[in-house]
Amino acid sequence: MKKLLFIILTVCLALSFTACKKNEAKKPELPTIGIAKLISHNSLNDAEKGILDELKELNIHANIDLQNANGDLNISSAIASKFKSDNVDVAVGIATPMTVTLANQLPNTPIVFTAVTDPVKAGLASSITQGNKNITGVIDAIPIKEQLIEFKKVYDFKKLGIIYTTSETNSVSMAETTKQVCDELGVELIVQTIATPAEVKQAAESLVSRVDAFYCFTDNSIATAMSALTDTAKQNKIPVFGGDITPTLNGGVVYALGFSYYEMGRMTGRLIAEVLQGKKAEELPIQSLNDPKFYNKLLDLDTAKLLGITFSDELINSAQYLIKDGKLITK
């Protein structure tokens, strides 16, 4: 009798185990999202965090592969190859060079980009709102003319210096726009190009005797090595103006205007979710952060005082960020 009971229990356990295995097999596999950023600096890190937070809020359950190319295009290529080998469901490129590499190596994979300034010149889109096959995203184009007009109200510069990375299509495009705007405003633009963040300090030193102000748009090398520029400029009593808030939060940039990369990341996360839910990437219009509520001002009162620059009470009251007595004040 005991032997019979043992046999019955054994059979039941075996059947139960088999049923569990079948149930496990029926569970759908989670989609895989490959997220790759060109380099680690505050702006791109904020965009990445915004993506992750939005996906979490939308209850998107997925395997997420986070990669960082560390500013190396060879590593970018290796990351794209990995995403292709892993057959990711969506590839996300943070910054122009990273996205271009993904697009070149993953022609049949949905690609969502963020922090790309000019997707048309980068070969990612046919227009500012329409991505190429399998591509959509969020652009980070900044209003250069409006920014320079605002900056000139507080410091009437005549010779403006910019430093940018020649390998970044977005930077080349913004340099061209800056030249056009400076011509309109009667400002002489003096340019120094670089290849890596390590060259920022030397580039700044080469310009200090020829300019009376610096302007930084959204260049990844500059964002990575912002202190090299601001320290050199401060030593030579030259103001730095910024077109992106995030890299300026540690001080040194007199006046910065820009939008939130974190909010841009959240907008990107919503596009990723739509792709995972079945929409084709190319059917989703390219988006941009054009809502004024995401456009912020930063004033460094300490650096301004050192350089003899004064701000109106109205401007100070309108700023979302102030640096005073070495501390960042967020309103």
Rank of each mutant, 00 (worst) to 15 (best):
A36V: 06
S76H: 01
K49W: 03
N63V: 00
N132M: 12
I79P: 01
N70L: 15
A69S: 09
N74P: 01
N134L: 06
E48V: 00
P97R: 07
A125S: 11
I60D: 09
T96A: 12
N70P: 01
I142N: 06
E48N: 08
V100C: 07
L66W: 14
F83N: 03
D53F: 06
P110G: 08
A95C: 06
P107V: 07
Q105V: 02
D46W: 00
V88D: 04
I75Y: 06
L55T: 07
N63C: 00
D140M: 01
I142H: 07
P143I: 00
N45L: 10
T101Y: 02
K145T: 02
Q105N: 12
K27T: 14
A69K: 02
L44K: 00
N108S: 09
E48G: 01
E29Y: 01
P97F: 09
I135Q: 01
K145S: 09
I139Q: 12
D65Q: 08
P97T: 03
Q67R: 12
T114R: 09
K84E: 15
K84W: 13
A95Y: 14
L106W: 13
V100W: 09
G34Q: 10
L44F: 02
H41K: 13
I64A: 03
P143N: 07
G137F: 07
P110W: 15
K37A: 03
V92R: 14
P143W: 13
D53E: 13
L55P: 04
V88F: 11
N134M: 14
I144R: 08
H61N: 10
K121Y: 02
L58T: 07
V138P: 00
E57P: 00
L124M: 14
T114E: 12
D89V: 00
S43M: 05
L73I: 08
S77E: 10
V90T: 05
